[in-house]
């Protein structure tokens, strides 16, 4: 029952949200261009760095790190704005009087962002393998699990982040902490392997780190069974925590 009735509702919500995304030039720009810009910036920044210790090439580092940029800019940041805007316009409250359940409302609203993100990820893999001489993914299953967990986690973190934003403008501000922490500490700019051990161990516990590690290891290979299980457990724990927190604290109407 759940899927067959929930799917059309989510598609209807997603379709409306896609129209809105098309009419919001700024959000469209963030979703379509920012990840590309960030990857390009990153390549010029770490181009001079010595990646010898990590055993990864520049292409390997930047293309796998790009998954993180996509999760952060296309899904996370975009959705914080979208959720806050819908909440402040009382759209979420109105939707909650209808047949769609809470998860369907949040999930349906996220659909266009998720579609854009998944498309970009597919392009990354295709471009990496066919034009940039990266190997075919070593463990596509791990990559896929990493991507799915990353998408769900990013949506949940976006919903949770809206708790601290009162307006669409302040939505940009409240996304900054996770963006910065992830850029620096989750292996997007600097691979964790290039960090001192203690720091790397700590950074492995950040929200997006296990997702990046799973995608990176899944594509390039070289993850031991022990590391794989560790990253899976960490990623699942963050996802569970974030979903729990959203159920507990998400606000469906403006604070008055």
């Amino acid at each position: 029952m759940a899927i067959s009735t929930a799917a059309p509702r989510m598609l209807a919500l997603g379709r409306a949200e896609l129209i809105l995304l098309g009419r919001n030039k700024m959000a469209l720009y963030v979703a379509l261009l920012l990840p590309v810009l960030m990857v390009w910036t990153m390549r010029t920044t770490i181009g001079d760095m010595d990646l010898g210790d990590t055993g990864m090439s520049l292409n390997e580092t930047s293309l796998t790190g790009a998954f993180g940029f996509i999760l952060l800019f296309v899904i996370y940041q975009n959705l914080v704005s979208a959720y806050v805007a819908r909440r402040e316009e009382l759209v979420l409250k109105r939707l909650r009087t209808g047949e769609a359940g809470d998860a369907e409302i949040l999930g349906g609203t996220a659909l266009p962002a998720v579609a854009v993100a998944v498309a970009q990820m597919v392009v990354l893999v295709v471009a990496g393998v066919f034009w940039m001489d990266l190997r075919a993914p070593a463990r596509p299953d791990l990559m896929l699990i990493g991507m799915v967990l990353g998408v769900v986690l990013s949506i949940a973190l976006a919903a949770l982040t809206t708790t601290w934003a009162k307006t669409v403008e302040s939505a940009q501000l409240v996304t900054t902490p996770l963006l910065l922490i992830s850029l620096v500490g989750s292996g997007l700019l600097i691979p964790l392997e290039a960090m001192p051990d203690v720091m790397a161990d700590a950074c492995e516990l950040l929200p997006l780190s296990p997702v990046i590690e799973l995608v990176r290891g899944g594509w390039l290979g070289g993850l031991s069974a022990y590391e794989t299980v560790g990253h899976l457990v960490t990623a699942l724990a963050w996802t569970y925590l974030a979903v729990f927190a959203v159920r507990r604290w998400f606000r469906w109407e403006p604070r008055r």
């Binding site: 598609l11 209807a12 129209i19 316009e89 009382l90 759209v91 109105r94 769609a100």
Partner: peptide, 24 residues
């Protein structure tokens, strides 16, 4: 609702279609 909202950038028909998709 006494106060409920719709996305301000949707048209009337688009709003009704969205709602219809959520309605048996």
């Amino acid at each position: 609702l006494q106060e409920g909202g719709f996305p301000s950038d949707l048209t009337v028909v688009e709003t009704v279609r969205m709602w219809a998709g959520c309605t048996t």
